[in-house]
Design a protein around this nucleic acid. Sequence first.
RNA 1: GCCCCCUUAGCUCAGUAGGAUAGAGCACAUGAUUCCUAAUCAUGGGGCCGCAAGUUCGAAUCUUGCAGGGGGCACCA
Length: 543
Amino acid sequence: MIEDILLKALKKIGIEADFVEVEFPRHEALGDISTPLAMLLAKKLRKNPSAIADSIIAAIDEPEIFNSIEKAGAGFINFRFKPSYLCAELKKLYSEGTDYLRPNIGKGKKIQIEFVSANPTGPLHLGHGRGAALGAAVANLLSAAGYSVEREFYVNDAGRQVKLLGESVFARYKAITNTPCDFPQDGYRGDYVDELAGEIYKAQGEKFSHANFDEASEYFIDCAYKAMLAEIKKDLSDFGVEFDRWQSEKELFKDGTVTKSIDALRDKGFIYEQDGAVWFKATAFGDEKDRVLIKTDGQYTYFASDIAYHVLKLNRGFDELINIWGADHHGYIPRIRAVIKAAGGDDNKLVVLLVQMVMLLRGGVPVQMSKRAGEYVTLRDIIKDVGRDITRFIFLTRRPDSQLEFDMEAVKQESPENPVYYIQYAYARINSVFEKAQERQIPISFDSATDLTGLSAPEELQLIKKLIFYPTTFLNAVRTREPHRITFYLQELAGLFHPFYYKHRILDEEETLTLARLMLCACVKIVIGEGLNILGVSTPDKM
RNA sequence: GCCCCCUUAGCUCAGUAGGAUAGAGCACAUGAUUCCUAAUCAUGGGGCCGCAAGUUCGAAUCUUGCAGGGGGCACCA
């Protein structure tokens, strides 16, 4: 990679750096690839950028790679590759495949990524889908970069919300058995609650018809949240999102993790009692107020088990803990950081990626959702109506921290021209070319001796340059934990492939050129396949 | 009142460890298929980067203030 060459040159002139920025110049006439490095160093070294650029250029000795290296503008260094170098890199890409595309910067470091973690009290909605798409893509990204990644879903199966769900189902059950009781305030009113009650009635008959909730609670809560969790698992699986581990909150209470981690904090003096409640001294670690762990009624707060959960994760030896949260939880970050610091951990290990709200529209009109009335569009509805690939792609075309409008009509109307199809179509097209090649019995075999000198048209050279730039884009995406960089790269790559395809024949040329173009196509297919896999979007052979 | 995110083309959005003349898709207009997939390609119009000041060789990007939109400030989860 060109980054390595630059780093080597910097070292030669006595500058230590671990990252250099490389980009495509704004206009192709300026060069093939470019770096603003000299300008960035100018401030640090207190020298003028032009002089720094000169010394960097002088320190690069790679006649095999570059046709020219020029200083331009305010201090850019622009490089032009030798065609022979581009061809050699293309062959490397082809033969090394993912080894070429995935520079290993993770080196086996352990990262855990916790995402979705929706309460098992109802079906997933679109916002969960956004978290799921992002989390899965970030996990794929990190794992491709050589990190050892664990995907975890934290199940809130203890506490008030699942109890409320059980109570709601119980009330519906009682209605079926004609022994009505009051529906809980703030209870869950979706159709699924009635369905659950119906199923329980089918299985248990009148067994609980004269019970009150306290007598039946364990059964109803258990039944209800487990059914919902199964639904959630199925929805995620249909969305193409898998987890390695499901951590139960209830287990943390059962096995003593909660009391143990609170005791540990108490030993360090960060726990105190006041007004009949037990508090954590979060203000000692930068939070704006202390937080309650055990309420005056003796109940643990959600935060108590969250302490246990994060301490447990820390102790499991991860180098980094990524949490993907809805933006409405942002106020929660300081107290979790406080917990980690109080427990003696390094809070830099915690990386919280906030996902902003999704506004669901239908033909420009906001879709009203009311959890109370049980009216809302579920993720499952969206997958069925819009499709999985489009849905995931849309989420990964936006920065996570900006609000997103998801218009079900617009997204579908765009359909034939949809960017996701544009990319997939390039993939399918290439596949079809290879099928045709096989039909025509063109002997397809590439190796290091394949003659690529015929690839000289601007469309071909641009494609090659884009292809061998993939690792740079990939590393930037990994570094920032931003999969959408891959999305935009793929659109650009497909945007170079289609014009190439339109302008040039692949199979009707003389054999050397045909083979060269086939090899180019093969590489485009490899890179698009790699990128779409990371995004979790399918790679159809035919469209 | 305090805190966080957002504001870029008609629409949806990229671009921010400060860099060259600010990009893409959609929509709109015109044109291209006897030929490997037209879900494609070519050409065109489109912009006080919310407003104002500051930092400097240079600001969509950093700082401050203001305006608009969203979210958060519980012994709820």
